[in-house]
Simulated assay, not measured.
Amino acid sequence: MPDTLAIDPEQLSRWLHGVAKGDAGAFRSLYDATSPKLFGYVLRILGKRELAEEALQDGFFAVWHGAPGYQRQLAAPMTWMTTIVRNKALDRLRSQVRDADLDGPIFDPEIMQAMEDPHATPIDALLVSRDARALTVCMATLEGLHRQAVGLAFFHDLSHSEVAQQLAVPIGTVKTWIRRSLERLKTCLSKGDRA
């Protein structure tokens, strides 16, 4: 496995130039030199090896097709490729959120915007995505109506009485559901009781 920290950006640029011309050998060299580092990066974002492998594959597919449009004056080669695989990882993360059966969009628009911020540093994106993923997984452990009550109260900023109206249940029930759900979320998040 090559030491990606020692890779000369000039060499990466030459390989990318070759990839832009359809040179499979240049693509193989580029892949071999950069994939370990990029895989580690997307694995930290997604937390699951199979998802990270898929995101990396999607990323390199995009590198192969996007190489003709690469502009060295705008970004260093590794920065450009890191941005591509980061976006593919975030696409996978958003897909997980949608597939988690969370009864509609529960995330605050600011969280989603932070996940998609093109100016966010890799560390910013990693922290936001890790927190969002953890919350999503913990929210998925709640029963359907309980999850919906928490989502309406905290992500849609509805009062307990408004949540009770939305769900057509007594306000006391809503308060109980939310209190118990928050306790469960706190335990899940603090103990790392996540799949």
Rank of each mutant, 00 (worst) to 15 (best):
A149W: 03
D3K: 11
E143S: 13
K48S: 00
T34I: 11
R133K: 13
Q148S: 09
Q113D: 03
D103P: 05
H146D: 07
R179M: 14
L152V: 11
E162H: 14
A75S: 13
W177I: 06
I7N: 08
V97G: 00
D103A: 13
R44G: 11
L127Y: 03
F27E: 14
S95K: 03
P77H: 12
H17W: 12
A168G: 10
A33R: 09
R130E: 08
G192L: 10
L46P: 08
L12D: 03
R98C: 04
R14A: 13
M115S: 02
L189R: 06
V42F: 00
V150Q: 03
Q165N: 13
A33M: 09
A164V: 03
A195R: 12
K191T: 14
R72G: 07
G104D: 01
D157M: 10
G47S: 05
L5Y: 12
L102Q: 04
A125S: 10
E143F: 01
Q71G: 00
A6E: 08
D23L: 04
M139T: 08
G144H: 12
D32S: 15
A114W: 00
L158T: 10
L158K: 14
T173I: 03
V19E: 04
E53K: 13
Q113H: 07
A62D: 12
P118A: 05
L30F: 04
G104F: 06
L185N: 11
D8M: 11
Q166K: 13
E53W: 12
T4E: 11
G40C: 06
S181E: 00
F107E: 09
L135D: 04
W80G: 02
D124A: 00
D99C: 06
L38Q: 05
I45P: 03
T82G: 14
E116C: 01
E10G: 15
A26T: 02
L167T: 02
L74K: 15
T187G: 06
L142S: 06
G47E: 02
T79A: 07
I84P: 05
L126V: 04
V137I: 15
D124M: 00
Q96W: 00
T83R: 06
Y41A: 07
I45E: 01
P109Y: 04
E162K: 15
W64Q: 01
R86K: 15
Q73M: 10
M78Y: 12
P9A: 09
K191F: 11
R184Q: 15
A55R: 05
L46D: 01
A6G: 08
G22F: 12
L145P: 09
F155S: 11
I123W: 08
L5R: 14
I7Q: 15
D91E: 01
S29G: 08
S95N: 06
S95Q: 04
L102K: 02
V85A: 00
L93N: 01
F39Q: 02
I106P: 00
D8V: 12
V169D: 00
T136W: 01
A153F: 04
L12S: 07
D8F: 09
F27R: 15
